[in-house]
Every structure is written in C-alpha cells, then in structure tokens.
Simulated assay, not measured.
Amino acid sequence: MKRILVSVSTIVALFLPVLASADTWKIDPDHSNVGFKVRHLMVSNVKGSFEKHAGTVVIDDRDIAKSRVEVTIDTASINTNVRKRDDHLRSPDFLDVAKYPSMTFVSRKVVRVGGDRLQVTGDLTLHGITREVVLDVEGLTGESRDPMGNIRRGASASTRINRKDYGLTWNKALETGGVAVGEEIAISLEIELIKAK
C-alpha cells in the first residue's frame, strides 16, 4: 500500500508544474478595445468599436497550443460616434441586433509563430453565421501587478473579414462608380487581461 501511495504522490508532484502553468484570465472591458474600420464611399475609412464585450483566455506558457480563447460581444454596443449611422448598423440592413444580440469567437488552435507573436484560429459567429478566422496576435506581455494587487497581461490582435461572408450584404451603388460601404472589415483588438482568482 505504501508503494502505491508513494507512486501516486510522485506522479502528482511531477505533473503539478504542468498543471500550474495554465492560468485563466478575464478580459478587462475598461482597458480593452474591440475596434474595426471599413471603407466609406471608396475614399476613406470609418472607424468604430463595440463598447460591451466579455471573455475568458486560458494561457499555457509551457505549451501555448493548450491555450484557448472565448469572447462574446454585444452587437448593440456598436459605436462609430454618429448616432444615425449606428442606428442603421443595428438595423436588419446590417447587424440586426434584435435578432442577433451578440457575436462570439471561440478558438480552436493556438500556435506560436515567432517571439511574442501568435496565431489564434477559431470560429467567429456573426449574424447567425459561423466562419473560421485567424487572429494575428502580438505583444503578449509578461505578468504585471497593478496597485490593487491584480495580476495583468496584455496583447494586440488583428484580422480581416468579408462582411458578405456573414450575410451582411446591404450596399448602395454610387453615381461615380463603386459602392457606399466596403466589403472588407479590418478588426483590431487591444486586450488587457486580469488573472482570475
């Protein structure tokens, strides 16, 4: 019996460092930004953001492939600083927030591509449609303690999607050629994380 107990305790001791290397983090919405930009009238970019979002990130520094991300974004919280435009973006012409109140991202694969750069592949569900996207992540920081004793980390991420892939097809032809709203949307994320207690 003693041998079995010693063996079990030895195995647990060996695996404890591995188990301890994966930490759970919560996205701090007050210090994070979910932004986007899209071409307007073929001449300039309009920028906006989603003000309400929440998410959990599990980071395994020993084996980054075991890390994972889950994020939910409130589509009605879209803000381009123009009320009329935001109301149109919330309407059935675009996000249809009454029918689709949130969008989600759930990772399926995390790989390190050099230094502090990662690629996070996952499923983005928007407007009732799920497509694979790849987030290019850079600047994953080490841990830092804030004045309140919370442990924090941060990172930036970006990707591009075609809105038509998600059924967001509304547009208006221009007399000079082209369309009112571009199809490609550039997404940029500035994320600050707080270690879960």
Rank of each mutant, 00 (worst) to 15 (best):
G128T: 05
V58I: 15
L95E: 01
D87E: 15
W25K: 09
H88Q: 14
R85G: 13
V34S: 02
E70H: 12
D30S: 13
T75L: 03
N79S: 12
L124H: 00
V18T: 11
I73P: 01
G114P: 13
S49G: 13
V97P: 13
V133A: 01
H88V: 07
P101T: 05
S44P: 01
P17D: 06
T125K: 03
D60G: 02
V111I: 15
Y100V: 09
S7W: 11
P29K: 08
V18W: 05
A98V: 11
A54P: 06
P92W: 12
Q119F: 04
N79E: 08
W25M: 11
L89T: 02
L41P: 07
V34M: 08
S67E: 12
K109S: 10
S32W: 06
T80R: 08
F36C: 12
N81T: 11
K26R: 15
D61H: 09
R85T: 11
G55W: 00
R131P: 04
V111P: 01
I4K: 10
D116V: 09
L126F: 05
D63R: 08
T80A: 07
V12S: 08
V38P: 01
T121K: 12
E70P: 02
S91M: 09
S67W: 05
S9D: 01
T125L: 01
S107Q: 10
T121Q: 10
V111E: 11
H31I: 07
S49V: 08
G115T: 07
M103F: 10
V38C: 10
H40C: 07
S44W: 06
V43Y: 15
S91A: 13
D60T: 10
P92D: 07
P29R: 10
L124C: 08
L126A: 03
